[in-house]
Write a protein that binds this DNA or RNA. Sequence first.
DNA 1: TTGTATGCGTTATCAT
DNA 2: ATGATAACGCATACAA
Lengths: 339, 339
Amino acid sequence: MAPAHPPIPTLDDVARAANVSTATVSRCLNDKSKVSRETRERVMRAVDALGYTPNFNARAMAARRTHTIGAIIPTMENAIFARGLQAFQETLHAEGYTLLVSSSAYQPDLEAEQIRTLVARGADGLLLIGAERGQQIYDYLTRRAIPTVLAWTSSFDHGFASVGFDNCAAMRSLADQVQAMGHRRIAVISGILAGNDRAEGRLRGIRESLRAHGTDPDSVPVIETGYEIENGADAFETHMKRAPRPTVVMCGNDVLAAGALSRARAMGLRVPEDVSITGFDDIELAGLLYPRLTTVHVPHRQMGRVAAQELLETIAGRKPRAARELAVSITMRESLKAI
Amino acid sequence: MAPAHPPIPTLDDVARAANVSTATVSRCLNDKSKVSRETRERVMRAVDALGYTPNFNARAMAARRTHTIGAIIPTMENAIFARGLQAFQETLHAEGYTLLVSSSAYQPDLEAEQIRTLVARGADGLLLIGAERGQQIYDYLTRRAIPTVLAWTSSFDHGFASVGFDNCAAMRSLADQVQAMGHRRIAVISGILAGNDRAEGRLRGIRESLRAHGTDPDSVPVIETGYEIENGADAFETHMKRAPRPTVVMCGNDVLAAGALSRARAMGLRVPEDVSITGFDDIELAGLLYPRLTTVHVPHRQMGRVAAQELLETIAGRKPRAARELAVSITMRESLKAI
DNA sequence: TTGTATGCGTTATCAT
DNA sequence: ATGATAACGCATACAA
């Protein structure tokens, strides 16, 4: 018969087994330095023998530190944030930090809840996407002095560190290119704008470019939709049923563009012969589609890495918070062709 | 000048503000029932006024429950586990549980470490992928009595609950189909087999089908490789440079198949005219590629949902653990064509 | 270098 | 229905 209560060893058990105080065991596991090699070895043997694992929650309470970072991203369903987050995680891990991720499903109120949850769990720092959210949240973060870095955006409006790029300028540059290739009838598929400064910036970029080229920005059709593949597909079909038909459909991100591309094929339209399509983000998918997607390349991994560094600096209190802006570029592939 | 120590309210503060004991406040936040409506309202007002959030770690220590489930998946980099995990998470959330996810990067030792970490954090239960891992880990889980469910596999060898499908039978069925369509020169791209019963089962399925069709399984070329797109691409190229050239390349999953497809295009080979390609999993990507991928459809969401239910049942101790096997089907698309 | 003692914020047991 | 109080497992200030 198995014991009803399997023995879950505690610091006390280890201390007793090694004939030292709990303080010494604790030091062995943390400070390493200030304990004699001899006793340390004895303690470690006891640790192994008992299969001891420190209780994280108890540790967090006593030390008031968790070495845990929380990240809240809009979605895990597609790859938009995957690479950046991976790099973020790797950098943190190298510094002895653990990453906790949760998804807000693009819902501001859900994000606020997740923030509270992560803070309640004792996160030492936070990574948030974008800069547009209620002032209340920023106040909360400030009151509780939670080191926070905003990523995928470049902004310093709230006094928080940020790491990202200029969504507006990037998309403007792509739109410039599109128009330089002769396109005049442009249609746009944008992500939901409310509470999303990235989507808003990208749309603004297109508008600015149009204006610079002498086109009335209000004359181009824009469909604002959710971030699913299917949404992109539907929006594309709607655009293509208008007259006159656009010669190019610019999408707010690669996922929407993938949906557009897929629907184009279903409608019997050839890309780019019948219509060009562009994306944004340059996720892996962009290079796998046929035709491959012309898109704005974002340095995902670098962004993740820098975000982690900034956050760690902020936690250590070593550096003034700042807005780090990264360079983006345009990746020309086959989905966009000159007229 | 801002206060040096921002006021982080505790139960005590709320209790004092509401003129009750901490016990009562605690009850308001949990048991709700056994406290008078009047005092409860007073307490809740105090909670709001102070912006109180319970300290998770303290709670975990005192209650010895976290309402947290840990999941360890081989990778977050591609979408293989995304949908299933999403459904898993949604089901847990509906029952008041939080999901913690970490990735093992397909490394068994890393998985073991993550398991310990999650348990140290007080996870009430665990979701693991596949059934192949050291007995030591199973012993650990058993000793600490951690409710665990194994997913993406159907096995009951270790006495743990499992939710999945028969990888071998599924792939065998696809191979049968491939051969029924006239293919005789088959090449295989498999994921790393060591410590991965899914990959092993899938390969075995192909072998069994070959044998049933009178072909010597050892005569078909198999390349075992990592799970990156690039790996699939390279393996495909290697296969296609052999003579005689295979008429179909069967891949261990959709990601490898995507790599194969991409390289086929780069090599100037038409799919499926010059060579057919098949995948496994039916992730979203499979329907976006051109040509769309013929693959084995896996009920990801259902698997996630059922896994969550099984786990919750196990935690509640309400039901005997069991192996749940789900049905899979073959999704015929354009990447596979008869000879 | 090592040990003692206190506190971290909450839940739960036992009274009242 | 409510209150007092003892755990929960660990880190750390202070003492030795």
